[in-house]
């Protein structure tokens, strides 16, 4: 589904990613772990299409297409979703309107009819339950006045409604207490599927207790240092990131 090849990315002239390779197939769940400043968020932002990153070489192919040639909205239409580390507040833009516009833009792009208002609201209510999001949040402005945990929950709720093929969860676990983490993880697990892939970016092994990954990658110094299964995360937790660099 996603093929990242020899990706080099700089921000303000500083090299962040230095030849990163990553292959993600449909049905897989990947965890990318690593210390602060390793380039984890850079990777997810580059995949989602955020400005401000200079791709100096390498390629990203998504479902056979050159992802780097696509605008952020085109990526969304094609099924790429980023759950933001710091979801932005957008006063005056209604949460439900945003989703409806997003869903319908995607459907239009796929040559499908727009959802009618009733069907859409049914979906929205159902998905809100999935992450136990209070229905009052639906009619509020996007993330405005939400607590940190509520923002993260709203991200996963949006993911559920937009139904992406490739979901990137950028530190979705940070700022969540244990109960919220369980709910959010439960929501994510329900969204797993054989034609879908999930990439979790996290510092902590904790999240992986709830969402079990097929692969764990350690990202440090701008490249994937090591890839393994779930047990790698446990080792990491025990020994720290320096251990990975020493035991490549």
């Amino acid at each position: 589904m996603l093929e990242v090849k020899d990706l080099h990315v700089s921000v303000d002239g500083k090299k962040i990613l230095k030849g990163l390779n990553l292959t993600i197939n449909a049905g897989e769940v990947h965890a990318i772990m690593g210390p602060n400043g390793a380039g984890k968020s850079t990777l997810s932002n580059v995949i989602a299409g955020r400005d401000g990153y200079e791709i100096t070489s390498g390629s990203i192919t998504y479902k056979g297409d050159d992802l780097l040639e696509m605008s952020p909205e085109e990526r969304a239409w094609a099924g790429v979703f980023l759950a933001f580390q710091y979801p932005v507040e957008i006063p005056g833009v209604n949460n439900t309107y945003l989703l409806k516009a997003g869903v319908n833009a995607k459907r239009k792009h796929q040559g499908l009819e727009e959802l009618d208002a009733f069907d859409f609201m049914q979906t929205v209510k159902e998905k809100a339950k999935l992450v136990e999001l209070d229905p009052s949040f639906l009619s509020r402005s996007v993330n405005e006045g939400f607590s940190g945990g509520e923002k993260k929950r709203n991200e996963i709720f949006q993911m559920a409604v937009l139904d992406p093929a490739l979901a990137l969860l950028d530190e979705t676990d940070s700022g969540l207490d244990i109960d919220a983490l369980r709910i959010v993880a439960g929501g994510v697990n329900k969204l797993r599927g054989k034609d879908k892939a999930i990439v979790m970016i996290t510092h902590y092994q904790r999240l992986l207790d709830y969402i079990e990954p097929d692969f764990v990658h350690v990202l440090a110094d701008g490249v994937i240092q090591k890839t393994g299964d779930k047990s790698l995360a446990v080792e990491l937790e025990k020994h720290g990131y320096d251990w990975v660099k020493e035991n490549k």
Partner: peptide
């Protein structure tokens, strides 16, 4: 940041 957020949800630029 707001513009990017909206676009990442499928809203055209």
């Amino acid at each position: 940041k707001q513009l990017f957020y909206l676009r990442s949800r499928g809203i055209s630029a």
